Computed example of a mutant assay.
Amino acid sequence: MASDDQTRTLGNGQKPPAKSEAKGASAKRRPTIREVARAAEVSIGTVSAVINGATTVTEKTRQRVQRCITELGYEPNTAARSLKRQRSSSIGMVVPDLQNPFFAAVAEGAHNIARKNDVFVVLGATGAESRWEEYYSQSLRARRLDGMILLSGSGRPNVGLVKLVDSGSVVFVDETIPGLDAPFVSAENRKGARLVAQELIGRGHRKVAIVGGPTWLWTSQQRLAGYREALAGAGIDPDTVPVLSGDYTEDSGYAATKELFERYGPGALTGIIYANDLMAIGGAKFLKEKGVAIPQDVSIVGFDDIISAKYFSPPLTTVAQPGFEMGQAAAEILLHKVGLLDEPEVTVFPTEVKVRQSVAQLK
């Protein structure tokens, strides 16, 4: 919510309507930010920037927007609107957990956009459990929030979520849910997975295994498809490659790597593909405990490019996806639905392979 000082600043230079005008205005619906943008011949984002005091708008444009705000009787500050609605503008941000740096980056990106537009963010963590996703869906809907951004850890629909989707007040980010038609912000998971697998195979590694994510999640399915494409392209039958599933945590990466070595024995594999960085770090912990050198004995690759990936020993070859920007885009979609912002130009973000020192060149 805007402070008192912000309210005075945003209202500076605006004259209240005369009593007769106010009476007539009260009988009409309140003008929207879209109508202000149309009258001023600018984008909704420019109007929002003027309202929030951004310095990126020229003085001429700022004056034109302010004039249209006054003439239309638009109430641009959140404090005034909140008094009439008896609540602040607010959205929900629901993630599996905040220990995963990628999830935290998505949440920070969404919060960054919300903060710039005086929108309060209610943050919830589900532990990747469907029952908690339903709890937050029902709770946030009951509290009449303006919408919810969901990074699902379960990949499953629930009654509360279906109602939010039907009302058009939910945006999915990173994970989509089958059967639910809602705006979706994602990265090129399949392409990134294919490229990082090609990097490993291209360095001579043909005895490889895959530690994927939960089989029911969209990201896991996309990444596995990309890995299989790279294997097939190199003349390796994907069905002959060992595949185990983790849950995107370090512990699951450790457990899956342990199972691979118990099942196939040391020396059977030269490379392991992990579907995210946390599982790669967990797998590396097991390898080091067993005296297996990375990358001399076994090469590993990850996905996400979390902040610790480049500081890992050895620095981890992985796939970078822009979590912060994805969170921003999701928030922009949601705030567009309530008339605060333009829709983002990008909703499917590129991925990029970061080649570091965790993959050895085989002779």
Rank of each mutant, 00 (worst) to 15 (best):
G73R: 02
T7L: 11
L244P: 02
V208L: 03
P214S: 11
T9G: 13
K290E: 15
A230R: 01
V170H: 04
V47G: 02
P178C: 12
A37K: 00
G212S: 15
S90Y: 08
K84H: 14
V301K: 00
D5F: 10
I300Y: 04
R143W: 11
G92E: 04
V65N: 03
R203V: 01
F102Q: 07
T70G: 12
L334W: 05
K288V: 13
A54M: 09
R263S: 13
R34W: 13
P178T: 10
D342E: 07
E289A: 05
C68K: 10
A255Q: 12
R190S: 14
V301C: 01
G226R: 01
G160W: 00
T240M: 11
V106R: 06
V353M: 02
I307C: 14
E262Y: 11
G267H: 09
P101M: 03
V121C: 15
D166T: 13
K290A: 15
V95Y: 08
A209H: 00
Y311A: 14
G267S: 03
V106K: 06
V301N: 01
G168T: 04
V319Y: 00
E71R: 15
F184E: 06
T249R: 11
G327F: 05
S152Q: 04
V346L: 07
H336G: 09
T176H: 08
A18N: 12
Q328F: 07
G147H: 04
L195Q: 13
L145C: 10
T249V: 09
K84L: 12
S139Q: 14
D247G: 09
G147Y: 00
D304E: 14
E229L: 15
R62D: 13
G233N: 09
A309C: 14
V106M: 09
